[in-house]
Nucleic acid binder design. Structure first.
Lengths: 221, 221
DNA sequence: ACCTGAACACCGTTCAAGT
DNA sequence: ACCTGAACACCGTTCAAGT
């Protein structure tokens, strides 16, 4: 019956979340998950179609930890709350940014979040199709920033968490080839001073400003 | 000697590119690559540290197909040219968007492209650190749009390339649960009418408008 | 309804040994 | 300098069979 199956699936997802937290996305294999549940790995396939569906469920479970924005807020404020919450939760779970970027948001919770973003753009006066497009841009932009921040915070090789590691590029390892990239070289020093919070705020403002501007222009016609 | 090794590596990368084109990123395994080169798979590890380095080289080889923007253009026009070229080339190679999104841009060609973007922001009057941040936002935003467009164009299950497939979400499979997502539902029809070219242009304009606005504001102080 | 056993068809990588 | 042979430690998934 439906309730039993739901419980078993939740159990599965819970164990998968633990695996993710402990060893990252690479450690989240069907075989390891089965082992943790004291079961043979083929047993998983009764509860879940395949690994992809499992990852989707895990992503949705993480998404469930995000607070939905108060409905009284203005559209832009609502989008900002969504953004901050998105970042807070994703940065709080190991490899969650990668999981969200790789996985298409089909789960109910992620869809609801998407719907909330679209509704904000609709309330700002945009037509339906445009609102969905904007929500898509918004989502990808947030994921990009958060993915980058996560890479910075948890460098793959943690032997040297070099402070000059910047925005996806190891500026320190440029070496003598740095002459080919004068502008990157020039920024190497100042980049370490930028705080992640400020960077996120800056990107968010830039994008929302651009979106607002477009809306104002459309309104004037 | 260096030249020999360079040739062998190029040979490797060339074969990897073919594999990618034929079967996508999933088909690009070290063992298949070795087979194509009529060699045992451990042989690859003399030419390349590991698979990650190989993927980085493949990405850089794809990047090499992009034209660098004419240096005479104004900053914004240069960024637009970069964006259009980025999209053109990535959409032209199977799974290239995914490859670029997953792989940190460490190759010389990708670094040069990054450098070009940073230089445009510098020429627009931004300080070094901010220019690099903007280039990072710019890159991630482009990748997001292109990734989405690629998902639309080459749906994973090509059994039903349903026209209502939209922005990462199968609107058609909402079914009766659609009542929970009224705004998504509302947009389902109009989304199919949006042309990819226009969508890309719109997103690009929105972001660059936002960036321009920020710069104008900073200039006034 | 839920799980096991056995198997299939793969992976990336290492390392001593060959030439 | 460049490659092979053999091995290690894994993968996701299927399918008949058990209970």
């Amino acid at each position: 019956m439906g309730s039993r199956i739901g419980l078993a699936r939740d159990h599965l997802v819970q164990a998968a979340l633990e695996l993710l937290e402990e060893g990252g996305i690479a450690a989240l294999s069907t075989r390891r998950l089965a082992e943790r549940l004291h079961v043979q790995s083929p047993a998983l396939y009764w509860h879940v179609r395949n690994k992809d569906e499992l990852l989707g469920l895990v992503a949705d479970a993480i998404c469930a930890r995000m607070a939905t924005p108060p409905s009284g807020l203005a559209p832009r404020a609502r989008l900002e709350r969504i953004a901050v919450e998105y970042r807070r939760v994703l940065m709080g779970h190991r490899d969650a940014p990668r999981l969200f970027a790789e996985q298409v948001p089909t789960g109910p919770c992620r869809m609801l979040l998407y719907e909330a973003a679209v509704s904000a753009f609709r309330d700002a006066g945009m037509p339906p199709g445009e609102a969905v497009s904007m929500a898509s841009f918004f989502r990808h932009f947030l994921l990009g920033m958060i993915l980058e921040e996560a890479r910075q915070a948890h460098p793959p090789r943690l032997g040297a968490p070099s402070p000059t590691l910047a925005l996806g590029i190891e500026l320190s390892q440029l070496g003598d080839a740095a002459t080919a990239y004068p502008n990157l070289r020039e920024a190497a020093g100042t980049l370490a001073a930028l705080k992640p919070d400020d960077l996120f705020r800056m990107g968010l403002d830039v994008l929302l400003d651009g979106m607002e501007l477009r809306f104002l222009r459309a309104e004037r016609t």
